[in-house]
């Protein structure tokens, strides 16, 4: 990439180390300052092939050969519509034919072979598979979203891990200093032999170190628990359902409701309707009927409430 030269202003990477090559859909390169100059108005023609271009379609050239850039562009555009997957075909043979067709289209477009014919083919495919394309697009969008989510989670975990390590370092420092201080205190105020004290402290420090090593050894374990493999596994499955819990036990058997009225038996719904009870309640309006309300329901309820509990006996408390 070092011997890049802008075809227009002939500036090379050697002359200007910050030179940035840009490329557009036609595959002809230009340096950044030339792009700024030529496409001041936002659009213009390519100096090489005179194809009208838009300025915001320029991007940094990644490959040495600008034709590859062009191909990448075309591939991206074509694959946006030709987005079928292997599982959408009944046999591997068909899928391979389909891939072959895509490659032909891309090749034709990149090398300017039968452009009109190929574009017609694409249009036709688009028309025939419109529903399918939209469906697959949304599916892919979802997958991308999941991937992003995973990346975000990973980033957070990384952050967390860094913080933990930092915290540990500070703690270790503090501990060391505290130990030292304790040793000096001991040496100053204790009556025991200085040599003995030193020895016991050295021993303590050694033990501490061993313990820490065990802890450190434990840490990576914790990391593998969050390993990305698990996360990717979740994303690769198209849709995950919660496991359905099966109720195991005796089958439900219907028992008719027993109503304890603790009073005289209220009339049945038939009696309410036929014995003239409803004559004495306001009949329902049209709007109320729309909501499913019927006057006989309210009438029934009032009667039931009136009779329930009439036999109530004050309970004798213990």
């Amino acid at each position: 990439m070092d011997d890049f030269i802008c075809p227009r202003c002939k500036t090379s990477k050697f002359q200007n180390p910050s030179l940035k090559m840009m490329v557009n859909v036609c595959g002809h390169g230009l340096c950044e300052s030339c792009v700024d100059l030529l496409f001041l108005k936002g659009s213009g023609a390519c100096p090489d092939c005179r194809i009208p271009l838009r300025r915001n379609n320029f991007r940094v050239q990644l490959f040495e050969d600008p034709v590859i850039e062009k191909e990448v562009d075309i591939r991206k555009r074509v694959l946006r519509d030709f987005n079928k997957k292997e599982e959408d075909f009944s046999s591997l043979r068909e899928y391979n034919d389909y891939l072959e067709e895509i490659e032909t289209i891309i090749y034709n477009l990149t090398n300017d072979v039968d452009i009109v014919e190929t574009n017609k083919k694409i249009e036709q495919y688009k028309r025939e598979n419109r529903d399918f394309i939209i469906k697959n697009k949304s599916k892919i969008g979802r997958e991308e979203y999941e991937l992003e989510e995973i990346l975000e989670i990973e980033k957070q975990q990384e952050e967390l891990r860094k913080n933990v390590i930092k915290q540990e370092e500070v703690n270790a420092k503090k501990k060391k200093i505290q130990q030292k201080e304790a040793l000096i205190d001991e040496l100053m105020f204790s009556n025991a032999n200085a040599k003995n004290i030193l020895e016991t402290f050295a021993q303590n420090v050694e033990e501490e170190k061993n313990r820490e090593e065990v802890e450190v050894a434990k840490l990576p374990n914790k990391m593998t628990q969050f390993s990305t493999g698990v996360q990717f596994g979740r994303a690769s499955q198209s849709i995950q359902y919660l496991p359905v819990k099966l109720d195991e036990g005796p089958l439900y058997s219907y028992k008719s409701v027993t109503i304890t009225t603790d009073g005289p038996q209220p009339p049945t719904m038939d009696e309410v309707l036929n014995k003239g009870y409803t004559r004495h309640v306001r009949s329902e309006t049209e709007q109320e009927m729309a909501g499913g309300y019927k006057a006989n329901i309210a009438c029934m309820r009032a009667l039931q409430d009136a009779l329930a509990g009439l036999f109530h006996v004050k309970k004798v408390n213990t």
């Binding site: 009438c299 009032a302 009667l303 039931q304």
Partner: peptide, 17 residues
């Protein structure tokens, strides 16, 4: 809470009937 107001309505309906 079961108030006595609805039972009153019920009894009046019953008396009328």
């Amino acid at each position: 809470i079961h108030n006595p107001f609805r039972p009153v309505e019920g009894l009046i309906i019953d008396i009328k009937t």
